[in-house]
Computed example of a mutant assay.
Amino acid sequence: MSNAPLYIQIKDYISTKIDSGAWGVGEKITTEMDLSSQFNVSRMTVNKAIRDLVNEGKLVRKPRAGTFVCAPSDKLESPLLDTANIANEVEQRGNQYHSEVLKLSSLVADNDVATRLGVMIGSSVFYCEIIHFEQGSPIQIELRWVNPTHVPNYLDQDFSKITPHQYLSENCPLSAIEHTVEAIVPDKQIQQLLSLSSNEPCLLLDRRTWSQDKLISSALLYHPGSRYKLSSKVTFN
C-alpha cells in the first residue's frame, strides 16, 4: 500500500488509466461520487486530485456533463527552434506564473560540467535549480550552469522575480543555440518535483547558448511528457 496522501493515490490512479489508454481521449472518467466510494474518501479529496489533473492539462471539466480526458492538442506548448521566456509563455496563455528557486550557488566543475560549458575541470561555475509553475502546477524543472567569466553578477539575481532566460537575454544577447530533445523515464526526485505518476515519462531538453562567440550557459529542462509538447515551424523561401 502506498504511503502517499490519498489524493495523490487517486491522482496516480487516474493518470495511470489515461497513460495506459484505458481511458481514451474524450472519454468521461469515473464520477467523483464513485471514486469517493471506491477509495473510501470524501468528495473533497477526490476533487483535489481531479483539480490538479485539470490544472496539468490531463482532464477538462464540462458543466453538467462531467470530467473528460483531454486531447493531445490540449497540451501546453513551447517552441523548439527558439528560446522563449517561460514566464511570458504562461502569461500569454492567460495563466498565472510563479517559480521556486531550489538552488543558486557556485560549484567546482567536474568533467561533465566542464565539457558542457567549455571550461577547465576544477573551474568555478554558477549553478541554479528552479521549478516553474503554471496555475500552481509544475511545468518545468530547470537545471542551469553559467560561465561566471561572462555573467559575473548571475548569483546576485532574484530568480523568483526574473527568469534566468530573461536575465541572460538582456545581458548576453543570444547569437546561437544548440539543443537535443529526448523522452526519458525521470528519477524519483524529478517525478516528485513535477508531480508525475510513477510510470509517466518526461521530455528533456538539453540546451547550450552562445552570445557572440562565447558559450554562456548550459541547461537541462525537464517537462511532464503527458501534458507538454515542444513544436517547431520552418519556413522555406
Rank of each mutant, 00 (worst) to 15 (best):
M1G: 06
S2R: 10
A4P: 02
A4M: 05
P5L: 09
L6F: 09
Y7T: 03
D12Q: 14
K17L: 08
K17I: 01
D19P: 12
D19M: 14
A22P: 01
W23R: 05
G26A: 14
E27H: 13
E27C: 09
T31D: 14
D34P: 10
L35H: 04
S37W: 13
N40E: 11
V41A: 04
M44D: 13
I50Q: 01
L53Q: 09
R61D: 07
R61V: 14
K62H: 01
D74Q: 07
S78W: 00
P79V: 05
P79D: 08
I86K: 11
A87L: 11
E91D: 01
K103H: 11
L104V: 00
L104M: 06
S106N: 05
A109R: 14
D110T: 07
D112S: 11
T115W: 05
L117K: 07
G118N: 11
G122T: 05
G122Y: 07
V125R: 07
C128R: 10
E129I: 12
I131F: 02
Q135V: 13
Q135E: 15
S137R: 15
P138K: 01
P138Q: 01
P138E: 01
I141N: 01
N147Q: 06
P152T: 14
F159G: 07
T163S: 10
H165A: 06
H165C: 03
L174R: 06
A176C: 01
I177M: 06
H179F: 15
K188L: 03
Q189V: 12
L193C: 07
L194D: 04
S197F: 08
S198G: 07
N199M: 02
P201I: 11
P201H: 07
L203Y: 10
L205K: 15
R207E: 02
R208I: 12
I216N: 00
S218Q: 01
S218M: 02
L220W: 04
L221F: 04
P224W: 09
N237G: 10
